[in-house]
């Protein structure tokens, strides 16, 4: 851990915190510009049966009678202490609501993540070992196909084929092993496509580099060239891409949970959208941003330690200053 790295880490940490706070403010602004006053609309909905007194109490408890900036400040300071407020709909703490559904989403998201990684690696590394003419072209087509299919369609096809036709699982038992398995596939496939695309592009780039030709000139076969030279430089940058897909995982689970009838963060969001339960929406979006920022922070902090090519700004200079230390910077178009 050198000085420049610690400086870099500190800077990234501060940036991450700033982004989290700004994301909270941004979400607050977006949900506050809702036309009309949906909160009081919901509360005054005769179906809910609140009395005027109760409504006043709720409004006071939520601080809705305060000016908007004061509301923002109160809400933000509560958020920083881990208090996400009360659901307008059920008057229960939002943290409790989220805690109830979180495990189910975590199971789904982490299995989908595993599916995505496995599938991406199979496709990308597979291209290295298949003959150019057929197999490889087919394999290379998969990512763009996967990216073109809405994930609810993948889910419905899986339900139709494996649930209805083959009877492998029942839709009314959405938490069973097979239901979770297929939900994870539906969620993981589009994400695998993004990772596979980057991996394939990196592999193509690296195998086109001079060093790959030179290593081949040193007598290396395709497998050893891949394993010893191409695997590491093409896979390392994927760390940061993988971190970026966390957002897709969270957004995609919204749909996948609906399709498979699972309870989770996604169904919580759905319910809150239809009831305009803003504190819950605000909390879920902010937490998603927190997760995304933290995962990416970790990726950014780990990556320089893995990849020796990364030179941190203000990093140490290793280059010796010998007489031999000057490869001319003049690009010469002298090759034939």
């Amino acid at each position: 851990m050198s000085g420049p790295y610690l400086r870099y880490a500190a800077k990234r940490l501060v940036q991450a915190l700033a982004v989290i706070l700004l994301a909270y403010v941004f979400t607050f602004v977006v949900v506050s510009i809702l036309p009309g006053d949906p909160i009081t609309n919901v509360l005054r909905d005769p179906q809910n049966g609140f009395t005027e007194d109760e409504i006043r109490q709720i409004i006071a408890a939520q601080g809705l009678d305060q000016p908007i900036l004061v509301q923002l400040w109160t809400s933000l300071s509560h958020f920083l202490t881990g208090d996400l407020g009360l659901s307008v709909r059920s008057s229960r703490p939002v943290t409790t609501l989220i805690a109830e559904v979180l495990p189910s989403t975590l199971v789904l998201a982490s299995s989908a993540f595993a599916v995505a990684l496995l599938l991406a690696a199979t496709i990308a590394y597979g291209t290295q070992f298949l003959p150019k003419r057929f197999g490889q072209g087919l394999l290379r087509g998969f990512p763009s196909l996967f990216l073109s299919v809405p994930n609810f369609v993948i889910g419905l096809v899986l339900i139709h084929v494996f649930g209805f036709q083959l009877g492998l699982f029942r839709v009314i038992a959405p938490n069973s092993f097979w239901a979770t398995f297929f939900a994870a596939i539906a969620l993981g496939i589009p994400i695998s496509a993004q990772i596979a695309e980057v991996l394939i592009a990196n592999l193509d780039h690296e195998s086109g580099q001079d060093y790959a030709a030179v290593a081949r000139g040193r007598g290396l076969g395709q497998f050893r060239l891949f394993a010893m030279h191409l695997l590491k430089p093409s896979s390392l940058p994927v760390v940061t891409i993988v971190a970026l897909t966390i957002g897709e995982l969270l957004g995609g689970s919204l749909i996948t949970e609906t399709v498979f009838g699972r309870t989770g963060i996604g169904s919580l969001v759905q319910r809150s959208v239809s009831t305009q339960d803003l504190p819950v929406l605000q909390a879920v979006v902010s937490l998603a941003a927190v997760v995304f920022v933290l995962v990416n922070l970790i990726a950014d902090l780990v990556y320089p330690l893995l990849d020796p090519r990364v030179k941190l700004v203000g990093g140490p200079k290793h280059r010796p200053t010998t007489a031999d230390d000057s490869s001319a910077g003049t690009p010469q178009a002298v090759t034939s």
């Binding site: 994301a23 941004f26 977006v30 957002g247 995304f292």
Partner: peptide, 23 residues
């Protein structure tokens, strides 16, 4: 920073809250 914020919120979730906000 604005772009960082927009990127930090999963884009589908962002689309959902924006559409909730505007109808």
């Amino acid at each position: 920073r604005l772009v960082d914020v927009l990127l930090a919120i999963p884009h589908f979730l962002l689309a959902v809250i924006v559409v909730t906000a505007i109808g």
